[in-house]
Computed example of a mutant assay.
Amino acid sequence: MTEVGLLDLVLGALMGLALGTLGGGGSVLTVPILVYVAGFGAREAVAYSLAVVGVTSLFGSVGHWRAGNVNWRVALVFGPFAVTGTYAGARLSVFFGETAQLALFAAVMLVAALFMLRGGRAAEEAGLEGDGGGPRLGARPTAWIAAEGVAVGVVTGLVGVGGGFLIIPALVLLAGVPMKQAVGTSLLIITAKSAAGFAGYAGQVEVPWAYLSSFTAAALAGIVAGTRVVRFVPQDRLKRYFAVFLIAMGLFVLGENVLTALK
């Protein structure tokens, strides 16, 4: 059984901090930690990350809800379709080898970075970055928002990415949700999607509950800090820095898997 070390706990806390401040990025950090630090296989890391991120996101969404940053109406439109897609993606994962799964994960990180860099600028131009104004759920057809939910859900199930960096641009640009509400609403949706994805891996992996409990506890400490400091952090600047980090991590994971495939 894998022992949880100090490095695991520190990285878990940093993952929670990112999730609390950005409303996403938990799995983008958790999967590489579980693979390259803890030494789990890709399939196990994807499944375990869904459990960790689901619990952490639930805890973080409560803090955002208390601060008035959860839009329940939008969550109820986007969420069920995302949950359905996540369960389907988890069941489809049996058709992917570990190298293919990690390569797809790297590709999703690069796409997420692009969404973060372009989505923030587009939101600014559309005047949607502030806290004022109510959500315009009808800004785009509901069917479009539902399709986005299914697509993000399938990606979540396949590679363990909670989808926050894909959900948030969709909520801001398609549903017209202010940025801070998008963060809190994203955490609520990620909670439901992660639970569905983890259920989809039932019977495929053996769960190290002791390790996951300790890692999740560290992540919870991080998300508590993140939900408290989010009001003081310049969101656009933080998103740009994290997008650069995503690009670096995506290229690293992709390069590792290309080398593995060539051996």
Rank of each mutant, 00 (worst) to 15 (best):
A113R: 00
I167C: 01
R231Y: 07
P169R: 08
A139D: 08
A151P: 03
L92Q: 07
W72R: 11
V77C: 13
V111L: 15
V28E: 03
V244G: 14
I33W: 10
G120V: 07
V4L: 15
G60N: 07
A146F: 10
V244T: 08
Y211P: 01
G63Q: 03
V154F: 14
V154P: 12
P234E: 01
F232Y: 14
L19Q: 05
K180S: 07
L212Y: 09
L104S: 08
G60E: 00
V177T: 12
G12P: 05
A243V: 06
V152E: 12
F232P: 05
F59I: 13
G25S: 01
I223C: 06
L212V: 02
K180P: 01
G138Y: 12
Q181S: 12
L188S: 10
Q204E: 12
A90K: 03
P234R: 01
V233Q: 00
G153W: 11
V35Y: 12
L262W: 09
E125W: 13
L137T: 01
A112N: 05
R228N: 03
T21L: 15
I190P: 01
R237V: 14
P141K: 05
V31C: 07
A107M: 14
G23S: 02
D236K: 14
V244A: 15
G197Y: 08
G85P: 11
A146Q: 13
L212Q: 00
A147K: 07
I190M: 13
F115W: 11
A126M: 14
G226C: 06
Y87R: 02
M249T: 07
L76I: 06
I189C: 10
R118N: 12
T99E: 13
Y201D: 06
L14Y: 05
G60D: 04
L110Q: 08
G153Y: 10
L171H: 05
V83N: 03
F105Q: 02
F252Y: 11
L104Y: 09
M1G: 15
A13H: 00
V244L: 15
F78L: 02
V172S: 07
G160K: 06
G89F: 12
V207W: 15
G164H: 05
L246T: 08
S214Y: 15
V52H: 00
A47P: 06
S213G: 15
V55I: 13
V108T: 11
K180F: 10
L171I: 00
W65T: 04
A196I: 02
A147F: 14
A112Y: 08
M116E: 02
W65Y: 13
V108D: 02
V233W: 10
L173P: 06
V46P: 11
E124Q: 15
L117E: 09
V152F: 13
L29Y: 07
G164Q: 02
G149W: 11
Y211L: 13
A147T: 14
V10D: 09
M15G: 07
M109E: 10
A103D: 00
F215W: 04
F198I: 03
F115S: 09
W72A: 11
I145G: 08
R91W: 03
A100S: 15
L110W: 13
P32I: 02
L188F: 14
D131T: 07
G226I: 05
G60Q: 04
F105P: 06
G89K: 04
V205G: 07
D8E: 09
S49C: 01
A217G: 15
A90Q: 00
G222N: 05
W209C: 06
V224K: 08
